[in-house]
């Protein structure tokens, strides 16, 4: 089975300015990929090229084994694209708009009603089927935007900032929608909300100044950048003593007190999470009451900051 997306040497110039330069990555069928980058890093340009809205200046892109330069029409049938601003006709009702989008993507008129109903079901927009798009809240507009992207059951969904401008409740609803879509589609989504990416995606692509600076799972990136990951321990007793004992274990680096109150300290230790048994033994043998020990949560924010700070200008 070919990868869903294979990008080799993708470059896009706007005049003299290279928005993206020599991008290389591949996405397998069924994966959910988070696309991370600062404003102006080249996320939207990349997604527009993959969505066949823009043509690349150089490089090769294949979607489901089809070359984007040879048969963009066939690729457009296989993708659903939600740009950063949902392309909604405010004078239409949700139902009519989705029917129009379905027929435009090649769904026969006789099957459009069923396709629209399924898309509305998946995006929880059934209750606004007959309402004018102009009267919808921002959250509903965003969900109708997702519905138009999946109404023709594409293999690949490209979502540019699907949670942009949503309130916390709407973000949770959108997250649930994306979780529902997992399995049925390969999903490539960009977001500024790092926790959103962290909770939704299997793998991350980090882009900076038009170049991919890192790719892998959050844990992979944390290990790579954090020197082998972190271990979190919660102890009853003096934190300084606990850090001293833990650091005596081979492979454990610096310790940081994350929180300390009422004689209980939460400490983050640099080191491979596989060293948890040795750390636990050392603390107990050293007379420290161990309340909890866990794999340190990868801090996506810090990974992101490190990557974007280290990226070449």
């Amino acid at each position: 089975m070919p990868p869903m997306i294979e990008v080799k040497g993708l470059t896009k110039y706007y005049g003299e300015h290279a928005a993206i330069h020599d991008l290389n990555f591949a996405i397998d069928q069924g994966e959910v990929i988070g696309f991370l980058g600062l404003n102006g890093a080249g996320k939207t340009t990349t997604l527009k090229v993959l969505g066949c809205v823009l043509l690349p200046t150089a490089g090769q892109v294949t979607v489901d084994g089809i070359d984007i330069a040879r048969d963009p029409h066939e690729i457009r049938r296989r993708i659903g694209f939600l740009p950063d601003t949902p392309p909604l006709y405010s004078d239409m009702t949700v139902g009519r708009y989705l029917t129009f989008a379905a027929e435009l993507r090649g769904v026969p008129g006789t099957e459009a009603g069923k396709a629209v109903a399924e898309a509305e079901e998946k995006t929880a927009t059934r209750e606004v089927h007959g309402e004018l798009i102009s009267s919808l809240s921002h959250g509903y507009r965003q969900r109708v935007g997702v519905a138009q992207a999946l109404v023709h059951k594409p293999k690949l969904l490209i979502l540019d900032e699907p949670t942009s401008g949503l309130d916390p409740v709407q973000i949770v609803e959108m997250r649930q929608t994306i979780h529902l879509l997992k399995g049925d589609h390969t999903i490539l989504l960009s977001s500024h909300i790092l926790s959103e990416i962290s909770q939704t995606c299997d793998r991350l692509l980090v882009i900076q100044h038009g170049e991919i600076v890192a790719q892998g799972s959050e844990q992979d990136l944390a290990s790579r950048l954090g020197g082998g990951g972190t271990i979190e321990v919660e102890v009853a007793g003096p934190s300084a003593r606990a850090i001293e004992i833990a650091r005596a274990v081979a492979g454990i680096g610096a310790g940081t007190v994350l929180r300390e109150s009422d004689g209980v300290a939460l400490i983050s230790l640099q080191g491979n999470p596989d060293l948890r048994p040795q750390v636990a033994r050392a603390l107990v043998q050293g007379g420290i009451d161990l309340l909890r020990i866990d794999r340190g949560a990868a801090r996506l924010e810090s990974i992101f900051l490190k990557l974007t700070a280290e990226a070449p200008q």
Binding site: G51, C52, V53, H73, E74, R76, R77, I79, F81, P83, T85, P86, P87, L88, Y89, S90, A101, L104, R105, G106, Q148
Partner: peptide
């Protein structure tokens, strides 16, 4: 202006 052209340009339409 309203960003709706993307719906057409990302669809299988010449």
């Amino acid at each position: 202006q309203t960003g709706t052209l993307v719906l057409l340009t990302s669809s299988p339409v010449h």
